[in-house]
């Protein structure tokens, strides 16, 4: 199944969760936050939230700025 992670087309297993996606890119850790299709997915919901086909996932963290 296809999804987009930080703008990159990504192939995911069926029934992948947000937590699976984060583990796949080595970002399942403190200091990151996730939006899926323009909505925040809380850390406490990462394990339960299944990624739908074609989802746009953004994984953000703090960087130098401002």
């Amino acid at each position: 199944m296809k999804a987009e992670v930080n703008g990159e087309p990504t192939e995911l297993a069926e029934r992948s969760t947000v937590a699976d996606v984060l583990r796949g890119i080595g970002k399942a850790r403190k200091g990151v936050a996730v939006a899926m299709n323009g909505q925040l997915v809380r850390r406490s919901d990462w394990e339960e939230t299944v990624v739908p086909e074609g989802a746009r996932i953004e994984v953000l963290t703090a960087v130098q700025g401002g």
Binding site: I25, K27, G31, V32, A33, V59, T61, A62, V63, G65
Partner: peptide, 26 residues
């Protein structure tokens, strides 16, 4: 201040670790 950007961008969370070490609130 810090900005929020995609986690794959170079520079990652280094800035947060730095602020924590210097006891500066982000």
């Amino acid at each position: 201040t810090v900005a929020m950007r995609r986690a794959d961008v170079e520079g990652g969370t280094g800035v947060l670790d730095l602020l924590r070490r210097l006891n500066i609130e982000p």
